[in-house]
Design a protein around this nucleic acid. Sequence first.
DNA 1: CCCTGATTCGC
DNA 2: GCGAATCAGG
Length: 176
Amino acid sequence: MNWTDERVEKLKKLWSEGLSASQIAAQLGGVSRNAVIGKVHRLSLPGRAKAGGTAPATASRAPKRTTSAPRAPNYAARATTRTVTRAQGATVVREEVEIDTVEEMEFVPASNVVVPISRRLELTQLTERTCKWPVGDPLKDDFHFCGNDSPDSSPYCNYHQKLAYQPVSDRRRAAR
DNA sequence: CCCTGATTCGC
DNA sequence: GCGAATCAGG
């Protein structure tokens, strides 16, 4: 694959938008992330400020939040489904986060009692083999994902897999 | 181990 | 000019 004007333009655009080299490589197709990085250098495009690190997209630091007392039932949000999409490398992660006023509060109480050894990963850290079980309130900034290793390419770790695939009949009512 | 960008250097 | 290999870092 050679660098046609079009491809170069796309490269410039995506790079300026802050996409990572591997993400760009995935979109262009036919090239590796190394090829992209190499091209970026040859074009003398501005590199990423600090080397070896996360894409600047994560730069938005959350304003420190004083840990509040265990959340009391505050399920204002009615049943909602928000789709959040992010890419990690050439991997596209699209998550349907259901905010179920019943199930959520049962599985995700204020404290992380239910969650084993969460690695507390950011959305940007998820890969094909990290558990994508959401922990906490997606609307709060302490929200994160389990992140434990998941067998094969399962979306969840062994523990959360059980919770994830419980038959509806089993979880109806305050069964838990 | 996953990922990131940076650099080198044979082609 | 190209990009795999390698390096350096989170």
